[in-house]
Design a protein around this nucleic acid. Structure first.
Length: 526
DNA sequence: CAGTAG
DNA sequence: CGGCCTTACTG
DNA sequence: GCCG
């Protein structure tokens, strides 16, 4: 292998527009090499720099058989730059000179468009969504889009893959140590926004963990690892290190980072986010006790409660106790109106052995009326306060405007129990209970994944329903009932999205693995 | 604007 | 390089 | 940190 000299600026004057492949990916270290040699690497034609020689690079071989896909990817009808295979670059790097492109060029016919599909600047901004709207009128055929979605296999795999090969959590995973270490990394980055480094890193780690768990087979090498979706160069390398040494050196760095540790401590307080935590750190505070002593009068009401219940709310709630909360509240609810339903959702519904809080969905058969719903929640909360179950409220429930009440957040404690718990009530119109259930059962990674999937299929999923992705001229979304595809039936929403229904117990995508036996046996806990 | 909810 | 799910609500 |  030829080692490129450190200072060679082989690609100094060129700009590469990379057209990503659909199913396979080129390791990102390659792009790093190109950049190191002076190239500008971009992904959109809008980023071309006039002073550079522009080349369009096809990452994968699929474009050699269907070159017109390049134009589709770039969302244009024609390009004036040469479209070349990836090999041109790799061969050029190897030769340490810019090779002639003639043997690598892909011939692409300009796309001809009729008037109906002529494309405007606005259309380009919106991608192909307009075409979709025009061709799809009813909800019935929304799933069999005639244009194959390249990511579909992967995205469905993320969801459907959970169904097969789902393992009990306690069972040992072939990658247990890797999952544990990556989970530690995710934890370290959770909620940290230091110096522009955002918690998107934590998101990436959790996605990678999910991907590895679903793969189910031992990842022995870097090459094994990087093949998986959501596992890139960085994480693949870390997997290699964990396999080799059992450790992850980067973990020690972040863990010894005082700033990170302190900020994370402050973030545990309900009502305190990055901004507040950072400010306290900057003022020199390092412990919550100092906040309590010096800043108490400056806290918001919610933060004051967060501090007051810091200890209680950091305790996990055993499953059995969640069930007790549910039974108690169901009883009170029946006393007010037996036709109202109150169900514990969240991690409890996903079968968790313990939960961080308790979430309840509140609804009544055939009732969408906000006035009725709001009135009931007001009565329910009042009754729970009389019974001295509710210890505090994190939001105001006004006596007037009951019709505007949609939720209640607060603290609830059962008689004879040690801790006050975080509880949430969420009012749900009967016609939206399917969508609401998906949302409130979670977990959040599952929600993000299924919502992404919906978007790729030109639909939009939120807690109020599954909608067609239709907007007005200003780009504002159409939430009218006519634009709603489905909201009441959870299974139907899955069906329309083209995935088999997934039971709540299998929606734990973001769960960080416990160390398991591997760690204990090898004695490297720590 | 920052924070919270799944 | 820019996006990473979503939207209403609170203070 | 990963993806397009």
């Amino acid at each position: 292998m030829v080692k490129p000299s450190e200072n060679s600026q082989l690609f100094k004057d060129i700009q590469l527009i990379v057209v990503p492949g659909a199913l396979t990916k080129v390791a990102s270290y390659r792009k790093a090499i190109w950049r190191k040699q002076g190239a500008t690497v971009s992904f959109r034609l809008s980023q071309v720099k006039p002073e550079k020689d522009v080349y369009i690079i096809c990452e994968t071989e699929e474009y050699e058989t269907e070159p017109e896909k390049v134009l589709e990817k770039l969302k244009v009808d024609n390009v004036k730059y040469p479209i070349v295979k990836l090999d041109w670059l790799t061969d050029s790097v190897r030769a340490q000179k810019l090779l002639p492109t003639e043997n690598y060029v892909l011939k692409v016919e300009p796309k001809l468009r009729d008037q109906h599909t002529s494309i405007s600047a606005k259309d380009i901004l919106k991608g192909k969504k307009r075409n979709f709207e025009e061709s799809r009128g009813s909800s019935a055929d929304l799933t069999d889009d005639d244009e194959p979605h390249e990511e579909e296999g992967i995205e469905q795999g993320k969801l459907v893959g959970i169904l097969r090969g789902s393992r009990d959590e306690g069972e040992s995973d072939p990658n247990a140590l890797v999952l544990y270490r990556l989970g530690q990394m995710a934890d370290e980055y959770k909620g940290s926004g230091r110096s522009g480094v955002s918690n998107f890193k934590a998101l990436s780690y959790r996605r990678a963990i999910n991907s590895i768990r679903q793969h189910g087979k031992k990842l022995k090498t870097y090459e094994d690892a990087i093949k998986l979706p959501d596992v890139g160069d960085g994480i693949a390398r870390k997997i290699e290190e964990i396999n080799r040494t059992g450790q992850l050196h980067q973990l020690d760095e972040v863990r010894n980072d005082e700033h990170l540790m302190v900020v994370k401590t402050f973030l545990q307080i309900y009502g305190v986010g990055m901004s507040q935590a950072q400010e306290w750190y900057n003022r020199g505070y390092r412990e919550t006790a100092e906040i309590e002593k010096n800043e108490k009068d400056k806290l918001s009401g919610v933060q004051r409660l967060g501090l007051k219940y810091l200890y209680d709310w950091s305790q996990r709630i055993p499953r059995a106790e969640v069930a007790e909360h549910e039974a108690f509240i169901k009883q009170i609810s029946r006393d007010i109106d037996p036709d109202f339903e109150v169900d514990a959702v969240g991690s409890y519904a996903r079968g968790a052995e313990n939960s961080g809080d308790v979430d309840f969905i509140v609804c009544k058969k055939d009732i969408d009326d906000k006035g009725i719903l709001g009135h009931f929640l007001y009565d329910l909360v009042s009754r729970l306060q009389e019974k001295e179950y509710i210890k505090c409220s994190l939001i105001n429930i006004e006596v007037k405007n009951k019709a505007r009440i949609r939720k209640f957040y607060g603290g609830g404690q059962l008689k004879g129990h040690q801790f006050c718990r975080r509880i949430d009530f969420l009012l749900v119109p009967w016609s939206e209970r399917g969508a609401a259930s998906i949302y409130f059962v979670g977990d959040d990674l599952f929600n993000r994944t299924i919502r992404s999937l919906a978007m790729q299929k030109h639909m939009k999923l939120n807690h109020k329903g599954l909608f067609k992705d239709k907007r007005d001229s200003k780009g504002h979304f159409d939430y009218s009932v006519e634009n709603r595809i489905e909201a009441a039936d959870e299974k139907r929403i899955f069906e329309i999205l083209g995935v088999n229904w997934i039971p709540p117990e299998q929606r734990n995508l973001g769960k960080i693995s416990s160390p398991g036996n591997v760690i204990k046996e090898s004695g490297i806990i720590g």
